[in-house]
């Protein structure tokens, strides 16, 4: 293999840790006898990799999420909730307590709530509003929502 090929290997697979063990052994043997390739090998990492590795990942300012939430018609506070808490299991859309679907009377149900369109949306953790007439919830009992639980319920 010519020095040009070894040089290519140093600038790519070697620097990026993608070199095969066989090529690594062969490269080690080559640089022992080739001062030019050894010189490149010795300075490649400090010159070509280290300057970039000192960079920190940068988070966008909070205003970016607020703009996205506004565009999508989401309450931006949703994104500020305790995200370390596991998400609750998904529930059917019409009974859901945290789905952000439209809840307009037409019941199209398939679009996201958008501001300024006279539609309400459900807020995580708050549940749906109590129904007139005293019915506090529209949800089916747990054993009907989760049929697999029925066996565990004493008759």
């Amino acid at each position: 293999m010519s020095c040009e090929r070894w040089r290519d290997l140093i600038l790519t697979d070697y620097l990026d840790g993608e070199i095969t063990p066989a090529d690594r052994d062969a490269l080690t043997a080559h640089v022992a006898d080739c001062p030019a390739c050894r010189h490149l090998l010795e300075r490649a990492a400090t010159t070509l990799v280290e300057p970039f590795q000192r960079l920190e990942r940068v988070s966008p300012p909070p205003a970016v999420w607020e703009q996205i939430a506004a565009e999508m018609g989401i309450d931006p506070e949703v994104g500020k909730a305790d995200l370390s808490r596991p998400l609750p299991p998904p529930c059917p859309r019409r009974f859901g307590t945290f789905w952000m679907r439209d809840v307009d009377a037409r019941g199209d149900g398939g679009r996201w709530a958008r501001p300024g369109r006279g539609r309400g949306f459900l807020v995580p953790g708050l549940g749906s509003a109590p129904r007139p007439g005293g019915a506090a919830t529209h949800r089916h009992p747990a054993h009907r929502r989760h049929p697999e639980w029925r066996a565990a319920i004493p008759s």
Binding site: W65, A81, L87, F98, W99, G110, W112, P124
Partner: peptide, 10 residues
């Protein structure tokens, strides 16, 4: 359409 899941992804 779950906003909280979308926020988590963001």
């Amino acid at each position: 359409g779950d906003a909280r899941a979308f926020a988590a992804i963001y």
